[in-house]
Design a protein around this nucleic acid. Sequence first.
DNA 1: CGGCTGACACGAA
DNA 2: CTTCGTGCCAGCC
Length: 108
Amino acid sequence: MKKTIPSTSFFQQVYRLVEQVPAGYVTTYGALAKALHTKDARRIGHALHANPDANKTPCHRVVFTDGRLAPGYAFGGPNEQLRRLQMEGVTFTQDNKVHLRIHLYQFA
DNA sequence: CGGCTGACACGAA
DNA sequence: CTTCGTGCCAGCC
């Protein structure tokens, strides 16, 4: 049977996790890295950058482990990402950091 | 084929 | 609390 899905590329798994993140919640690169049993969170960034369907993959819900947004966001700058997250209902601090304490999504 | 850079994270000063 | 340096792995030239 061909259910092993050997073609499941790494970023494909990343998308799966990111897609499961509900609105109003955010995830961190480190969390995704751990969820995928990897030691390097940078790969997560590469995967999101390779994101073929930004409309399907809410990469804007992925932030740093500190709760800050990515510096090189491609949707129009971190300003746009912040605006988008706020639209989702995510709250920010004066430091423009997401309240991971409240919006950090935990992978069961 | 080899080397460089990169949507990061963690530790130490 | 803030800032700098190093480590890790893969993609890209």
